[in-house]
Computed example of a mutant assay.
Amino acid sequence: MNIFEAVKENVTARQAAEMYGIRVNRNGMACCPFHDDRYPSMKVDKRFHCFGCQADGDVIDFAARLYGLNNLGAAMKLTSDFGISYDNKGRASPRPVKKKISEELRLKQAELQCCRILSEYNHLLGKWKTEYAPETLGEEWHPLFVEALQKQTYTEYLLDTLLAGTTEEKAAIVKEHGKEVIRIGERISGLVARHKAGRDEHSRLAPTGTDGR
């Protein structure tokens, strides 16, 4: 069993996605890390496939895309992160021993989580800026419109740093703003849940036809 076979035998694309900080829901769907994905469009199981950008492959392809590695580099990273031992001829043990997640990996997971939350928040801010914009000069400004004006430029700065900054700059964002971003994520989840509950209630009360049936 060579290194590629050993990795694919022991690690699924879903396990790798979750290890690297990507949240996968109970249906095996996740926001694709390979394009600007606001809603889950990537199916992750033994393999992965994105219905948005068409990215597709096995666990090695996934790690290679995520970290910009060739297949050998991706396989070596997976063996390291999942504790799969192999010798200098590329032969690997089929039974990995999962080791403690390294500090580097924890940081990468935190970066991905912050990036996902801030992307969703930035999308909401843009939506609020349009939907809640005052229609007349004397109209009182909606709190969500005010928040969009105050927070969007700052949020875009944090996102840009997480996407294109140096390793040190990304680490600083996570260290200095991580807790703040987590609170934003919790708030977004609450807003989405309330919106869904209101929509479901409206659908339940609305008539299905002109005769009320």
Rank of each mutant, 00 (worst) to 15 (best):
residue 133 A to N: 02
residue 160 D to H: 15
residue 155 T to E: 08
residue 178 G to E: 09
residue 91 R to H: 12
residue 58 D to R: 06
residue 45 D to G: 09
residue 52 G to Q: 07
residue 186 E to A: 04
residue 174 V to H: 09
residue 212 G to R: 07
residue 142 H to S: 08
residue 101 I to M: 14
residue 156 E to S: 14
residue 189 S to T: 07
residue 146 V to Q: 11
residue 135 E to L: 13
residue 113 Q to S: 10
residue 82 F to Q: 05
residue 100 K to G: 08
residue 138 G to P: 00
residue 89 K to V: 02
residue 15 Q to S: 10
residue 56 D to I: 00
residue 121 Y to V: 01
residue 38 R to P: 02
residue 18 E to P: 08
residue 159 L to P: 05
residue 166 T to P: 10
residue 28 G to H: 09
residue 181 V to C: 05
residue 64 A to F: 03
residue 111 E to D: 03
residue 202 H to L: 13
residue 73 G to Y: 10
residue 198 G to H: 09
residue 29 M to E: 10
residue 70 N to I: 05
residue 126 G to L: 04
residue 41 S to L: 04
residue 134 P to V: 11
residue 198 G to T: 02
residue 191 L to D: 03
residue 27 N to F: 08
residue 124 L to N: 09
residue 155 T to S: 11
residue 112 L to K: 11
residue 153 T to A: 15
residue 196 K to S: 11
residue 166 T to D: 12
residue 82 F to R: 04
residue 101 I to P: 02
residue 81 D to C: 08
residue 23 R to A: 15
residue 12 T to W: 04
residue 179 K to I: 03
residue 109 Q to R: 15
residue 63 A to P: 04
residue 64 A to T: 04
residue 46 K to D: 13
residue 142 H to G: 07
residue 79 T to N: 12
residue 137 L to M: 08
residue 1 M to E: 10
residue 54 Q to V: 00
residue 49 H to E: 11
residue 187 R to A: 12
residue 4 F to S: 01
residue 90 G to C: 05
residue 103 E to C: 00
residue 213 R to W: 08
residue 204 R to Y: 11
residue 144 L to H: 12
residue 1 M to S: 07
residue 209 G to I: 02
residue 135 E to T: 14
residue 3 I to C: 06
residue 72 L to Y: 13
residue 63 A to N: 05
residue 81 D to R: 03
residue 69 L to P: 05
residue 146 V to H: 05
residue 112 L to P: 00
residue 26 R to G: 00
residue 134 P to D: 07
residue 117 I to G: 04
residue 138 G to E: 12
residue 192 V to D: 15
residue 114 C to S: 13
residue 27 N to D: 13
residue 194 R to Q: 13
residue 11 V to P: 06
residue 70 N to R: 11
residue 84 I to K: 03
residue 115 C to Q: 13
residue 137 L to I: 11
residue 201 E to L: 06
residue 54 Q to K: 10
residue 196 K to C: 03
residue 133 A to V: 09
residue 93 S to I: 00
residue 1 M to G: 03
residue 87 D to I: 12
residue 189 S to D: 14
residue 75 A to C: 07
residue 198 G to N: 15
residue 58 D to H: 05
residue 50 C to E: 02
residue 14 R to W: 02
residue 58 D to C: 04
residue 32 C to Y: 09
residue 110 A to K: 12
residue 57 G to S: 06
residue 213 R to H: 06
residue 64 A to E: 03
residue 162 L to Y: 06
residue 73 G to K: 10
residue 205 L to E: 10
residue 41 S to Y: 01
residue 106 R to M: 14
residue 4 F to Q: 06
residue 64 A to S: 15
residue 78 L to W: 11
residue 37 D to K: 11
residue 57 G to H: 08
residue 49 H to Y: 15
residue 202 H to N: 02
residue 210 T to L: 12
residue 49 H to M: 06
residue 177 H to Q: 14
residue 158 L to H: 01
residue 39 Y to D: 05
residue 194 R to L: 12
residue 161 T to A: 06
residue 36 D to H: 14
residue 19 M to C: 05
residue 177 H to Y: 15
residue 49 H to P: 01
residue 206 A to I: 00
residue 99 K to E: 12
residue 17 A to N: 07
residue 98 K to H: 05
residue 35 H to Q: 05
